[in-house]
Design a protein around this nucleic acid. Structure first.
Lengths: 348, 348
DNA sequence: TTGTAAGCGTTATCAG
DNA sequence: CTGATAACGCTTACAA
């Protein structure tokens, strides 16, 4: 219908090697070879420089689909990354993309919903793209069919953020230790009733942080019974509903550990709505140290975790896999950041 | 080095149409045709079903690089999207990805730094991928060389979030009106010294919101002089430094409009550090209504803007362009959400 | 319905 | 160093 399309059809869209070859008066293969030499280096022949110049003039862009078909390399890395709106996930994604670009790769991103079937479809779609490697983040690695699907792609894979029972190499942060630090801090302050907004059951991150907290408390003789550990999602709303459930208990906690900052903000909102002041009526520990929690009226005590380094290390390991070197799993260290949202309990 | 690679080398990586053809005992072209028929439909011949079954058994995944080379369609859409860690941007990105997946397309994502050269490199890299369409978000559309580069790719393009002087179709939210609503609200409360944390100069979003606010105030006879309008970035830190500059003025503002919520959180942090209470000592209006600002101890008055719809509409328009239909620009409506961070000024 | 064959744009092998 | 040629995996006239 539009004139543009017809114009495109007559002048075959983008210049090809053949077009350059004709313009220069040499064979395609000569052009192909010349263009992969560095024209600025000292030993570049004048013909190489000439070909580069003409290619530039014609606005040549290599067709990577054609090159990839031939070389069986797409220089593309698939990334399956749900929950992109979570700052921590987005930071990891940015770091992956930056490292990939630096290494000459590009990122094919999918952000399926937090649901097994959608995530499997994403992986299959990426497999059709003949990606060179795959990074999976925050997906349902607890499901055996998920892991099987991932392995069946037959390319290097690395998990990021969450882990999968040693069937996949993974780059994570030390979630258990982070949870431990949170629990230890609250116990040291004197809290003996600690509630946990524990996130989804299927996420190893959430689970490890929760377990770390429980272990730290147990080491000091404090038990976290079933009712003190509520499972939610990672969002603000999850924090709100989780907090209400905990604070509705007959013997409510004097402190709450939320396994991520976003949920912790929800907890703080729920506390405000109940007229509870933080930290005097309720101590609160978050997780991740996202930039804004230090600017809240009552800045959160939280666990700082290296989201961007996680992405960078994951990509670096994946490149090792692509180049047929051995890949390794990594667990990056975390640290406790004490701010104003925690204090000694005002009641037993 | 690794055994896997050698195993792969002997059994040529992924099954191809040829492999299936051999297994079934027909020609490649027959397989190709059969696989693009629906085997579950009533009129599927037994041979079509047989081919589908065998392909499934062999774990066949079409090679889209080969198909794309032939058909000159990659079913890939390039997305250039800096500042992915901004929730609003990430929401838009998720919406784009979801809509693309639904339409059978995939997203090639780049998140270059907020800098012209990096963004141009991103666009060139995408062009090599023979993407079918391009979505550019939050990039330096104020630069003519940027726009020229974008247009030179020769495929349908749509801008999202920011606009570019009518040279590009764009899907944005009504930033000017959003700013206007903010200014109007503050004026109606009685504020006559209003400071603006105005974001970067090169972003049309920031500029339009600022101008909208200034226009609303001007309509009520209130002037915003140079010193009351500070340019920063969109981050928490920008809000902090911007607020300090405004509050250090001889005649400091009684209200601040920050052109995004993240910066507004920084403003709130700076106010806290100065011992100013919001809203009594300082009224504050944010922008975007990201989920967490409603849960803050003093929930923000802010402008609600439809980030996800923006992405969905942009993709829909881009698909029109790809299918050679006319594309159109859209400006989506915004609304004022009044919460607790604004009130009447306590001093003139 | 099925087979034949050409071709998409590139790289790799092999001669000259 | 250059040119000719085959091949990567797929789609699509066209012919049978």
């Amino acid at each position: 219908m539009s004139k543009d399309r017809e114009a495109l059809a007559s002048s075959p869209r983008q210049p090809t090697l053949k077009a350059i070859a004709d313009a220069v008066g040499v064979h395609v293969s000569t052009v192909s070879r010349a263009l992969r030499r560095d024209p600025t280096s000292g030993d570049a022949s004048k013909s190489v420089r000439r070909i580069h110049r003409i290619a530039e003039e014609m606005g040549y862009r290599p067709n990577m689909m054609a090159a990839g078909l031939r070389t069986n390399r797409s220089y593309t890395i698939g990334v399956v990354m749900p929950r992109l709106t979570d700052v921590v996930i987005a930071q990891t994604c940015e770091a992956i993309e930056e490292a990939a670009t630096a290494a000459g790769y590009q990122i094919l991103l999918t952000t399926p919903r937090d649901e097994v079937r959608a995530q499997i479809r994403s992986i299959q779609a990426l497999a059709s793209r003949r990606i060179d490697g795959l990074i999976v983040s925050s997906i349902h690695l607890d499901r055996p069919d998920m892991v099987e699907e991932i392995l069946s792609v037959g390319i290097p894979v690395i998990a990021v953020n969450r882990r999968a029972n040693d069937q996949l190499q993974a780059v994570t942060t030390d979630d258990h230790h982070g949870g431990y630090l949170a629990g230890e801090h609250l116990a040291n302050l004197g809290h003996r009733r600690v509630g946990i907004v524990a996130g989804p059951r299927h996420a190893s991150t959430a689970w490890d942080r929760t377990q770390g907290c429980i272990d730290a408390l147990a080491a000091r003789g404090i038990e976290v019974d079933e009712s003190l550990c509520v499972h939610t999602d990672f969002e603000v709303q999850g924090g709100i509903s989780g907090a209400h459930r905990l604070l509705n208990l007959e013997d409510p906690p004097t402190a709450i550990f939320a396994v991520n900052d976003t949920a912790a903000i929800g907890v703080a909102g729920a506390a405000r709505d109940r007229g509870l002041s933080i930290p005097h009526d309720l101590s609160l520990v978050g997780y991740n140290d996202i930039p804004l929690v230090s600017q809240l009226p009552v800045p959160f005590t939280t666990i700082s975790s290296p989201a961007a380094p996680m992405g960078a290390v994951a990509l670096q390991q994946l490149l090792r896999g692509i180049n047929d070197e051995d890949m390794a799993s990594f667990t990056l260290p975390v640290s406790l950041v004490v701010r104003a949202s925690t204090t000694v309990p005002s009641r037993s």
